[in-house]
C-alpha cells in the first residue's frame, strides 16, 4: 500500500502539479491566440513575443515595487505588478493595432499577409524586449517559495516521497482560473462580449446591426494582451524570465489552440492541458515510479523515459499533426467563441 501511495505522490509531484501549472500558462496563451484568430481571422505569430513583452513589464514593475519597499509577503510582489503589466501590454497592443494592423484590416488584406505583418511585429517586440531588459535570464520571484514542502509532507504522512507545491504553481493556477472565469463572463454576459461574438460569427450581419467594428477589434486586442501579460508573467514567475523562451512557447501555444479547435475558447483550455500533460508525461522518467509499484526483482534498469526532454517540441508538434490529420477541426468542434 505504501508503495502505491508513494508512487502516487511521486507522480503528482513531478507530473500532475507541474502539468497543471504549465497547462494553465499554455491555456492562457492559447486563449489569446484563439480570440485574435476568431475575431481578426489570422494566426498571430507575434503572440509569443507579446507574452515576453508583458512579462518584461511584470518584471520591471516588480523591481520598481521591490525598490519602493512594497511587499505582500508571503505572496510574490509580481502579483501586485500584474495589473501594471496588463495595462502596459494592452496599450502596446492598441498602439500596434492602430499603427500596423488597422491599415490591412481596412484594405481587407489576405490572412497570409496579416501573418507576415505579425512576423514584423514579432521582430519589433523581440528587439524591443531585448533592448530594454537584455537577452539574459532574470529572476523576480520573492516571498514564500512553497505552499507544501516535501519535508513537511513526509513528516506529516510518514511516506518516503514528499509532495511539494510551489507558491508560483498555486498562484498560476488560481490566477488562471480567475482570468478564465472573467473572460467567459465577459463573452457570455456582457454587451461588448456579445458584440464580439456576433462580429466573429458574421462580420457583415454584425455591421448591419450597428456594431462598431473598431470597438470590437479594440476589445479583442485588450483581452488578448491581458491574457498574454498574465500568461507571460506567470510563466516567468514559475520558471524564469528569458526573452527567447517566449518565442519558443509559440509552438506549444499554437498546438494547444489548434488541438482544442481554433476559435473555441473551451478548446484552447482543453488543448493547453492536453499539450502540457503530453509533454511532461512523455518526457518523465518512470523508473522510480515503477520501482514503487513492482516487486524489487522486476525493477526496471533504464530510466524508463519514453522520449528525451530535448525533444519536447516534437511532442507538441506530433499532437498537432495527429489531430490535424485525424480530426482537422480539433477536439471540440462546433460551437466557436
Amino acid at each position: 500500500m505504501d508503495g502505491f501511495l508513494n508512487a502516487t505522490v511521486l507522480l503528482s509531484n513531478f507530473v500532475l502539479v507541474p502539468g497543471l501549472a504549465y497547462g494553465a500558462q499554455l491555456a492562457l496563451g492559447a486563449l489569446g491566440v484563439t480570440l485574435v484568430y476568431r475575431v481578426l481571422r489570422f494566426a498571430n505569430l507575434s503572440h509569443g513575443d507579446l507574452m515576453a513583452f508583458g512579462a518584461m513589464l511584470g518584471v520591471l514593475s516588480t523591481w520598481a515595487l521591490q525598490a519602493a519597499g512594497v511587499s505582500i509577503a508571503p505572496l510574490p510582489t509580481a502579483l501586485l505588478a500584474l495589473p501594471l503589466a496588463i495595462l502596459g501590454t494592452a496599450l502596446m497592443s492598441l498602439f500596434i493595432e492602430t499603427a500596423v494592423y488597422r491599415h490591412h484590416r481596412l484594405r481587407r488584406s489576405a490572412p497570409a499577409i496579416f501573418m507576415i505583418v505579425s512576423v514584423g511585429v514579432m521582430f519589433m517586440l523581440n528587439g524591443l524586449v531585448r533592448v530594454v531588459i537584455g537577452p539574459d535570464d532574470q529572476r523576480f520571484a520573492d516571498g514564500a517559495r512553497f505552499i507544501v514542502r516535501a519535508r513537511d509532507f513526509e513528516a506529516m504522512t510518514g511516506l518516503s516521497e514528499g509532495l511539494s507545491i510551489r507558491v508560483s504553481q498555486g498562484i498560476t493556477f488560481a490566477v488562471a482560473m480567475a482570468a478564465v472565469a472573467a473572460l467567459f463572463y465577459f463573452l457570455n454576459r456582457s454587451r461588448a462580449g456579445k458584440a464580439m461574438r456576433a462580429y466573429a460569427d458574421n462580420e457583415d450581419l454584425a455591421l448591419l446591426s450597428g456594431i462598431d467594428p473598431d470597438r470590437v477589434v479594440r476589445h479583442t486586442w485588450i483581452i488578448a494582451a491581458a491574457l498574454a501579460a498574465i500568461a507571460g508573467t506567470l510563466y516567468g514567475l514559475d520558471k524564469s524570465f528569458k526573452p527567447f523562451t517566449y518565442f519558443q512557447l509559440l509552438l506549444p501555444v499554437f498546438a494547444a489552440a489548434i488541438v482544442g479547435g481554433i476559435g473555441n475558447p473551451v478548446g484552447a483550455i482543453v488543448g493547453g492541458f492536453v499539450v502540457s500533460f503530453s509533454e511532461i508525461g512523455l518526457t518523465y522518467a518512470y523508473k522510480k515510479f515503477l520501482t514503487y509499484l513492482v516487486p524489487p526483482a522486476w525493477a526496471p534498469e533504464g530510466l524508463m523515459q519514453l522520449i528525451a526532454t530535448d525533444y519536447k517540441f516534437a511532442i507538441s508538434f506530433a499532437i498537432l499533426v495527429i489531430v490535424l490529420l485525424i480530426r482537422p477541426t480539433g477536439i471540440l468542434p462546433g460551437r466557436v467563441l
Binding site: 500596423v100 491599415h103 490591412h104 499577409i113 507576415i116 505583418v117 512576423v119 514584423g120 511585429v121 514579432m122 521582430f123 519589433m124 517586440l125 523581440n126 528587439g127 524591443l128 531585448r130 533592448v131 530594454v132 537584455g134 537577452p135
Partner: peptide, 22 residues
C-alpha cells in the same frame, strides 16, 4: 543602452517588413 544596441537590428528588420507591406 550601449550594450543593448546590438539588438536594435531585430527592431529594424521588423520595421522594414511592416513598412514594406504597408
Amino acid at each position: 543602452f550601449l550594450e543593448a544596441s546590438a539588438h536594435l537590428r531585430l527592431f529594424l528588420m521588423g520595421f522594414i517588413l511592416i513598412l514594406a507591406l504597408r
